[in-house]
Every structure is written in C-alpha cells, then in structure tokens.
C-alpha cells in the first residue's frame, strides 16, 4: 500500500512539475535481436511500468531514409528521446538543435552538438570484452572440457567493421593476452546485423580453423554464432543481454551491456533533477552496467574454481586493479 502511494506521489509530482510524460526510443536497427536493441527496450518498458509514462519505439530497420523523419516526428511527439544513432549522428544534431527543449539521450556512441543539448551514454565496452576475452582464453586452454582442442585459438564475429566493434575486439584481445600471451584471436566481420545465417557461417568457419570459443558481437546476426556452437559442440560468448539460456551448455557467459539499466538510470536522474544536458555519461563494470553474466548455465559448463577466478577478475576491473585500454581509432 505504501509503495503504491509512493508511486502515485511520484507521478503526481512529475505531472505538477511538468516532468516528462512521453518517452520515445528511436533505433537505427530493429527489435528482436535478443541483445542490444531488446535490452534498451526492456528499460523503456520499465519506465512505462514504474513512472507511468507513455512510450513509443521507432525502428528504422537500417533504412537511412527513415532516420530523419523518425527523429523529427519523435521530437514533435515526445519529451525525452533515447536514440541509438549509429550512422545518423548528423541528423540527430540537426534536429536536436531545432528542438533544444527536449531531452536528447544518445546511446552507445558519443554525439556532441555545439550548444550542448545532446547527452550521451558511453559504455566502456572494452571492459566487458576484456572479461569475455579472459574467459575465452581460459576455456580454450582447458582441454579437459568436452570439445576443446589443444590449439590456443579463440574467435570473434563482428557485425560491421566499425569503431564500437573494434573497441570490443580491442578489449577482447587484451583479456585473452592477460591470461595467456600465446592466444591467437581471429575475427570475422560479417557486414550485417540482422542475418543469423551469415553469423552461423562465419562462426563455423572460425571453429573449423581451430577456435574453441567464439565471441559474438553482431546483434541478431550473432544468434547464428550461438547456434553454430551447439551444432559443432563448441562454445560461444553472448553479448549485450544475458544469452546464456538461449543455447544451454554452449554459451559460457554473456558480455552484458545493460542498455535498459542505463536508460532507467538516466531517466531516474531526469526525474531527480540530477541529469545534465550535454554530458557524456560513461558506464562500465564499476557502475554495474557492463560485465559478465555468470549464472547457473555458466556453472554447469565450468568448474567452480574457474567461475571464482572469473568473478575475481571482474572485481579487479571494477576496482581499478586492472585498467583496460580503450580503443583509439
């Protein structure tokens, strides 16, 4: 009863203060990837539940001609706009300048306009990828596990060859070398974000080249990587959302990027009044937004001491004992 009252109170305050009532989530790709975009969507849904705001999701389905009108319409309709703007940074700046009173939050990349209207959420994805690389390196040397060969090769499947994916790969390599400097990392960029068949093909190729663990960094395309792991009896690491349960026994862990959590966090700051326009919010392992999903699925695959070692590594990254170098283009 108390909780309900509290929520009502919050809603009331919001409406009195003219706080945001309409939230839009504009993404360059499409929902249904069970990772990146969907993670953000879960955050949006949470806002709807907890703050009673109206929400809309606009999927551009990777069609650049939709970016501008989508943003423009979103600007007319919503008070707060969360944007995943790969490729339409220019349009975002242009429209944000035309609608400076709206709250613009760009996710996953840093977009800065001259007037400081757009805020950005920047993930230190290299930290999570570092941990993923460390896990992959550990596993490929554990020849006692089924399906592991003696070769010290691990792989990764990327969507496009772009800055964000490169920084993932950069962290992944650092993690692997941290465990064993002899580990070889093979990467395939498939060039698409929504084609699981191509992801599967790429993963099969990596497994055939001797990789035991493949890290997927390709949204829906990466779903094929998980399937490939199951097909050849090898291992994969998921990305963005917890993908461990998708193919049980073959997905060791997932490199989480809790987009939804970060959206929730930012929105709360907006309500609290602690939110700052034009600021770049950097989220990593320390903030609990980036990190590995270590759960029962992981424990079924790996021995307890390995799991402990992983959790310890994660802590070291969080408290700064291990510093992961960011990718510089």
């Amino acid at each position: 009863m108390r909780k309900v009252f509290l929520v009502l109170l919050i809603i009331l305050t919001i409406s009195i203060l003219g706080a945001p009532r309409r939230v839009a989530y504009v993404i360059n790709g499409s929902l249904g990837d069970q990772s990146f975009y969907d993670s953000g969507y879960s955050g949006i849904k949470q806002l709807e539940k907890e703050f009673g705001v109206q929400t809309r999701v606009i999927e551009c389905n990777f069609d650049p001609s939709l970016y501008y009108p989508s943003l423009r319409t979103a600007a007319q309709w919503a008070d707060v706009i969360f944007v995943i703007s790969y490729g339409f940074e220019e349009e975002l700046k242009e429209i944000a300048t035309k609608f400076p009173n709206k709250i613009w939050v760009n996710i996953d990349t840093v977009v800065q306009d001259e007037k400081g209207i757009i805020s950005s959420i920047d993930y230190r994805e290299e930290e999570g990828a570092f941990l993923a690389g460390a896990v992959a390196a550990m596993v490929t040397t554990m020849t006692q596990l089924p399906g592991i060969n003696p070769q010290k090769i691990i792989g990764a499947v990327g969507g496009d060859d772009d800055i964000v994916i490169r920084s993932f790969v950069h962290g992944y390599e650092q993690g692997a070398k941290y465990i064993d400097p002899e580990i070889q990392v093979k990467v395939i960029y498939v060039g698409t974000w929504d084609d699981p068949a191509k992801g599967k093909q790429a993963a099969l190729q990596l497994y055939a080249q001797g990789a035991d663990v493949v890290f997927q960094i390709a949204a829906l395309t990466g779903f094929g990587v998980l399937q490939a792991a199951q097909e050849v009896g090898k291992y994969a690491i998921g990305v963005d959302s917890n993908q461990n349960p998708l193919v049980p026994g073959h997905v060791i862990t997932s490199d989480l990027k809790e987009v939804g959590q970060s959206i929730y966090k930012i929105f709360k700051m907006i309500i609290d009044g602690t939110f700052e326009k034009g600021k770049v919010y950097s989220f990593g392992v320390k903030e609990g937004i980036v990190g590995l999903a270590v759960d029962d699925y992981t424990k079924k695959i790996l021995p307890a001491e390995t799991v402990d070692k992983i959790l310890k590594l994660q802590e070291m990254v969080a408290n700064g004992t291990i510093v992961v170098k960011p990718y510089v283009p």
Binding site: F62, D63, P64, S65, L66, Y67, Y68, G87, F88, E90, E91, E94, D160, G191
Partner: peptide, 15 residues
C-alpha cells in the same frame, strides 16, 4: 539533397 550527405551502408534502402 538527402539528410546524410555521405554514402553509408544501407543508403539505397529499398528505392
């Protein structure tokens, strides 16, 4: 004349 002013992947859409 569009909004991108650059060539990017997917710009041809389904035109």
């Amino acid at each position: 004349g569009g909004t991108q002013h650059r060539f990017m992947k997917g710009i041809g859409a389904n035109f």
